[in-house]
Simulated assay, not measured.
Amino acid sequence: MLKLALLFLVISIIAGIFGFSGVSAATAGIAKILFFIAIVIFVVLLIMGLMAGKAIF
């Protein structure tokens, strides 16, 4: 997921350099959305891992 976000970020930067502002804005938005989805998935899995590690005896 983070690889896709990084890919879209690079595409956005390259499009911005060449003057394609519409494409640049769209790919930057996609990269931002993918980054936040990856962060949410990371936090959910981190919480699940911490909960699974605590066994009540």
Rank of each mutant, 00 (worst) to 15 (best):
I17Y: 04
G16C: 14
I33G: 06
S12L: 01
A55W: 04
F8S: 05
K54C: 10
V44E: 10
I39S: 03
I56M: 00
F8K: 05
F57S: 14
L45W: 07
A25N: 14
S12Y: 07
F42Y: 05
A26W: 06
V23D: 02
G53K: 02
A38M: 08
A28T: 05
F8H: 09
M1N: 11
I37F: 12
I41L: 15
L4N: 08
K54T: 15
F57M: 10
G49E: 14
G29A: 05
F18L: 13
V10F: 03
L9W: 07
F18W: 12
I39E: 02
M1V: 10
L34T: 00
K54R: 10
M1A: 12
A31K: 04
K32Y: 07
A31L: 00
S21A: 15
I47G: 11
S12E: 12
G49A: 01
L50F: 15
S12T: 08
I30K: 06
K54G: 07
K3N: 06
V40K: 04
F18Y: 13
I11P: 01
K32C: 10
I56L: 01
M51L: 14
A38W: 02
L4K: 05
V23M: 06
I37H: 10
F8G: 00
L50I: 14
M48H: 13
F8A: 10
I37Q: 01
F36H: 03
A28D: 10
A26F: 02
S12R: 09
L2G: 01
F20Q: 11
A28N: 11
I37W: 06
L7K: 04
V23E: 02
G29H: 04
L46D: 11
I37V: 11
A28Y: 09
L46F: 10
G19W: 00
L4S: 00
M1R: 10
F20N: 09
L4A: 01
I30E: 00
I37D: 07
L34W: 04
G19Y: 01
V43E: 09
A25F: 05
S24I: 09
T27I: 02
F18R: 09
F42C: 12
L45V: 12
L9G: 04
G22E: 15
L50M: 14
A38L: 05
I39M: 12
G53A: 11
L34H: 08
V40M: 05
G49M: 08
I11S: 04
V10R: 14
I39P: 15
F36D: 09
L9P: 06
L4I: 00
A26C: 00
G53L: 13
L7E: 00
L45A: 09
I47A: 14
G16E: 11
